[in-house]
Structures are given as C-alpha cells and as structure tokens.
Design a protein around this nucleic acid. Structure first.
Lengths: 111, 111
DNA sequence: CTGAATCCACCTCGATACTG
DNA sequence: CAGTATCGAGGTGGATTCAG
C-alpha cells in the first residue's frame, strides 16, 4: 500500500475518534479486566470494579460493543449467563495503552 | 532495569491518569499543532483550529501547562505576545499517539 | 493581542427502584 | 443474574462581554 501523509488535522481526527471510544469513567478499567482474552460475567465485573453502578457498567459495555472493542457472549439458560470479552481489535489496543503507560511513567523519571 | 508487574487495577490507574490529561474536546487537536517543537501564538492556534472559542483554547492550554505537557513563553512587550510549545515530556507523547493511530487504522484493514 | 468573567444549554454520571 | 427506568446534581463546552 502507498505511503500516507498525515496533516496535523487528519491525524488529530483519527486519534480523536480512537480516544472517544475509550473515554468514559470506566471503560479503561473494564478493558484491563478483559485483556489477555479473559472472559468475565456481568456480575464478576460488577464485583471486580468497586464503585461502578449497573447502569454505568452496562452502558460502557454496550458502547464498546458497538465500537467493536468488546464482544458479548450470551448463554441461553436459567439463570441467565452473559460473558464479556475483547474482540481481536480490542486486544490490539494493548500496545497503544502500553505506550501511554510508558509515557506516564516517564514523568516520574524526568523530574 | 527491573521487571514490573502490573495488576489490572494499577495499570488502568496509570493509563487513566494519562488519559485524563488528554481528555477534553480540543487538547489533542492543539497537541498535534504543536508537535515537532513548533511554537504557536495564541491567535495562531485560534485561527488554526476552526470552531474553538477563546475560553476553550485558554482553558485547555492552561490545564496542559499545569500537567507539564505544554510550556508557555511570554514575551513582555506591547502588544502582548505569548507563544506555546510542548515540553520534552509533551513531545514524548508522540509514540503513544502513534500507536493509537495505528490501532484506529487497523479497524479498516480488519473488515 | 491575550485573557478573564458570565450566563446557559447540554450531557454525563450516580443513586435508587423496578423487571424478565 | 442481567438489565431497564427515572430523577437530579454537577461538570463541560459555547457565546458573549469586559479588561490589561
């Protein structure tokens, strides 16, 4: 494929869209609980993330599902059982988040 | 250097703090206009970023200044002249933002 | 030119209670 | 267990006006 030139504006656009998908009080926290291909049930996440409400949990999950980051696995049975995991594209977030973590860490070292 | 173990919670914490510094409707856009060590005056940024208000511009700049991402260079003269640029730490953001851009790009390729 | 100060509409989030 | 419904407080961004 051809080389692509990014203007400041278009690059900002791309990153901004990516950012929007990860914005929200709880998305990152949820994401980290799902990294490594781990699956978690709704109630497991609820317990694993102190302070989150059901409303927020389901809302953030739904949005990320809509963005193609998270996948939802429904087991038709009683009592209901639903598991959440990352899509391949969701897993691909790791390096980016790692870079951010590195950046955050550089602050302490720099002063 | 020593190997560091991150729990899901602590990693989320670090990235979340980093994220908070970049959150906001305009910060990324501003950042991209400052990458590469470029300096820009207040009014230049205002013109370069259509749709932003003075309030937002100064607000986002101040916050990033407080976070140590942006530096403010004041030239004492009339008429007033103030330039903005990135700190070294701010420049170090590039790889992280690049990773995010890559990730965003992978979506189109995957489907 | 740079920036501070108001006023206001909107959206997000939290708490609570309820349903299949 | 998994999710929905509703209400209200607070924050955020936008427009406008004023000041050094």
């Amino acid at each position: 494929m051809g080389k692509v030139e990014y203007t400041a504006a278009s690059a900002a656009d791309g990153v901004e869209q990516a950012f929007k998908m990860l914005e929200g009080r709880w998305k990152l926290v949820i994401l980290f609980h799902l990294f490594g291909g781990k699956l978690a049930r709704f109630s497991e996440l609820e317990r694993a993330i102190p302070g989150i409400s059901q409303k927020m949990l389901i809302q953030q999950l739904r949005q990320m599902e809509g963005d193609g980051i998270v996948r939802r696995i429904v087991h038709h049975q009683v009592p209901p059982k639903v598991e959440y995991g990352l899509t391949d594209w969701g897993q691909a977030l790791c390096p980016a988040l790692d870079a951010l973590l590195t950046w955050a860490g550089q602050r302490a070292g720099a002063r």
